[in-house]
Write a protein that binds this DNA or RNA. Structure first.
Length: 275
DNA sequence: ATGGTCGGTGGCCGA
């Protein structure tokens, strides 16, 4: 017995990640290999492009992870995998807007509590074109998520909450390779940037940028036109942390290597380390 | 050569 080993404050390091994997079924071997290699405790996935009954639950269980998935069709789809517990799974956030004809829930948000932290895997609507109904939906969706986040912190300002995923917004000019190429485009418009910035006064802050500053640091590269080789990317994936969670962050990285090799996703994982 | 993509699906849509 060596009591000294067990004395003092217990420091628990946790690595969490978010990754738009652009189809979990076509890329499950890569996803499994990355999770094993990267030693993450919690990973939020977006664009699984699967119905629940198609989701490869066994592959995560074999790795020692519990996993929750929310998917209706070949579109969207979000998941959270965890090896530090997975409880209170919630599909969709309170007040999440509907879409389609007839109006219906899209599988774009999934909440779960893992290791005392409330995680949300979010896949923000793309917007398609400025002025398109989908663009209005995107702005509304972001506004409603902000309201939900604000309400959670008003209930308890000390809650550890992570809103992480593909936000489909490049908040700063440096978050795209050339602003001239995005003239009039979605992802960089002022209303979208305002919708993203509106999280800041509620207490949610991006915890990655200070550890992975730009310019030229991206999380997404279009498959077309050799964008990755030409370093033409966008920073679209973010981890927004509540104040109590942000205080635990000791580091972050964007795993650009994962964009290489055979059949990668067009997004790469974003990893945050908590103490 | 001045372009160059995917995935899921089912014959195009969404990104």
């Amino acid at each position: 017995m060596d009591d000294a080993v067990h004395a003092g404050p217990r420091v628990v390091r946790v690595r969490v990640a978010t990754w738009n994997i652009n189809s979990v079924r076509s890329r499950i071997d890569r996803v499994v290999a990355w999770i094993e290699r990267s030693d993450v405790d919690v990973v939020a996935l977006q664009e699984t492009k699967s119905r629940d009954e198609q989701f490869p639950y066994d592959r995560f269980a074999d790795l020692g992870y519990e996993v929750a998935h929310h998917g209706h069709s070949q579109w969207n789809g979000v998941a959270i995998a965890s090896r530090v517990g997975l409880a209170d799974v919630t599909t969709g956030f309170p007040g999440q807007p509907l879409w389609g004809e007839p109006l219906a829930d899209e599988a774009r948000a999934l909440g779960a509590t893992c290791g005392g932290v409330r995680f949300w895997s979010v896949y923000v609507p793309h917007g398609r074109e400025v002025g398109d109904p989908h663009y209005a939906y995107k702005l509304d969706w972001l506004s409603c998520l902000r309201d939900a986040g604000q309400a959670w912190l008003e209930t308890d300002a000390d809650r550890q909450i992570a809103l992480m995923g593909d936000w489909n917004i490049a908040p700063r000019d440096d978050d795209v390779w050339d602003m001239a190429a995005f003239d009039g485009a979605t992802h960089v418009s002022q209303p979208e940037r305002d919708a993203f910035a509106a999280f800041e006064p509620t207490g949610f802050t991006d915890v990655v940028r200070r550890y992975a500053p730009g310019p030229g640091v991206y999380t997404y590269w279009d498959y077309q036109r050799l964008c990755f080789a030409k370093k033409r990317g966008m920073r679209l994936d973010f981890v927004l942390a509540s104040p109590a969670l942000a205080a635990r962050v000791t580091g972050a990285l964007i795993d650009r290597e994962e964009r290489k090799g055979n059949r990668p996703s067009d997004h790469v994982p974003v990893v945050v380390e908590l103490a």
